[in-house]
């Protein structure tokens, strides 16, 4: 059995301490009694209570959640279509332009994406609000989804689809009954990625949100600009714990699925 060498253990410990200590401090100090964020004055959950009373934050959280659900769902549908076109679509007019438009938003600085979308919305006279943020988030998230899904599509056996077509499926049926179940894990992780990207986005939302709709990152940004506040620490703690629980659950489920698939494979070998 291989063991950790002292060098590797030190570098891993230091590396992970660097990654996790700042967030750990944030979580601990969200339970601080004092308004002074760097002085410990005893345990208290009062900042969570105050957060729950803060209408502005709750409204922003609700807007953010709605935007994230709608835009990630739209992005998953469009991104999966785009991935299918890229991998299975064959040749069509403007294919290079299409793949360029899929990859460019991934490396485009957010300030440029935000600026260009805002200028478009003003140009066509669309009022800025939830709709414009959804459109903006869908656009950049669909590119991420299509990259995730197409990497899965590339690796799977095309003859399965062809068999379904030979057996009389329409292309759409073949996709729904054969392709989709196989690429489902990638579609789900694409959705999750799109969802977190949307929850997280500050820059593009700041450009595309109007006065009628403020998202949580915009709200957080405008209040932390003035300095550290215990309420924001409490809010951050809630967000960090949701993500941590989500990611750990997902990894346990996928580990179990892998174990089950291995057990099935072994059982199949025995018979």
């Amino acid at each position: 059995m291989k063991r950790f060498s002292w060098f590797n253990l030190t570098s891993l410990t230091l590396g992970f301490a660097f990654l996790y200590l700042p967030m750990l401090i944030l979580v601990i100090y969200s339970f601080n009694e004092s308004k002074l964020v760097t002085v410990w004055a005893g345990f208290s959950t009062k900042w969570y209570g105050e957060l729950m009373q803060n209408e502005a934050f709750l409204d922003a959280a609700w807007v953010t959640l709605r935007v994230a659900v709608i835009s990630s769902t739209l992005a998953t549908v469009l991104g999966t279509m785009a991935a299918h076109v890229m991998v299975r679509g064959g040749r069509f007019f403007g294919r290079t332009l299409f793949s360029g438009m899929i990859y460019a938003p991934l490396v485009m600085p957010e300030v440029i994406t935000g600026l260009s979308l805002l200028l478009l919305f003003i140009g066509i006279g669309l009022d800025r609000g939830v709709v414009t943020i959804v459109l903006a988030h869908t656009t950049f998230a669909m590119c991420y989804v299509s990259v995730v899904v197409s990497s899965r599509l590339v690796s799977f056996d095309k003859s399965l689809e062809e068999a379904a077509l030979d057996l009389g499926c329409t292309p759409f049926q073949a996709f729904r009954l054969v392709t989709l179940p196989i690429i489902m894990p990638a579609v789900v992780s694409g959705w999750l990625l799109a969802f977190t990207l949307s929850l997280d986005d500050l820059v593009i939302a700041s450009f595309t949100a109007g006065p009628s709709a403020t998202t949580l990152p915009i709200k957080i940004f405008s209040s932390v600009r003035l300095g550290v506040s215990p309420e924001i620490n409490a809010l951050s703690t809630i967000m960090i714990s949701i993500v941590a629980i989500g990611v750990i659950t997902a990894s346990i489920i996928s580990k179990r699925n892998i174990a089950r698939a291995e057990a099935d494979a072994r059982a199949a070998e025995r018979t």
Binding site: P22, I220, V224, S236, V243
Partner: peptide, 12 residues
Amino acid sequence: TSFLIRVYSWMG
């Protein structure tokens, strides 16, 4: 985890 929160955690 939120990018914004990770940057913010260094302010304190």
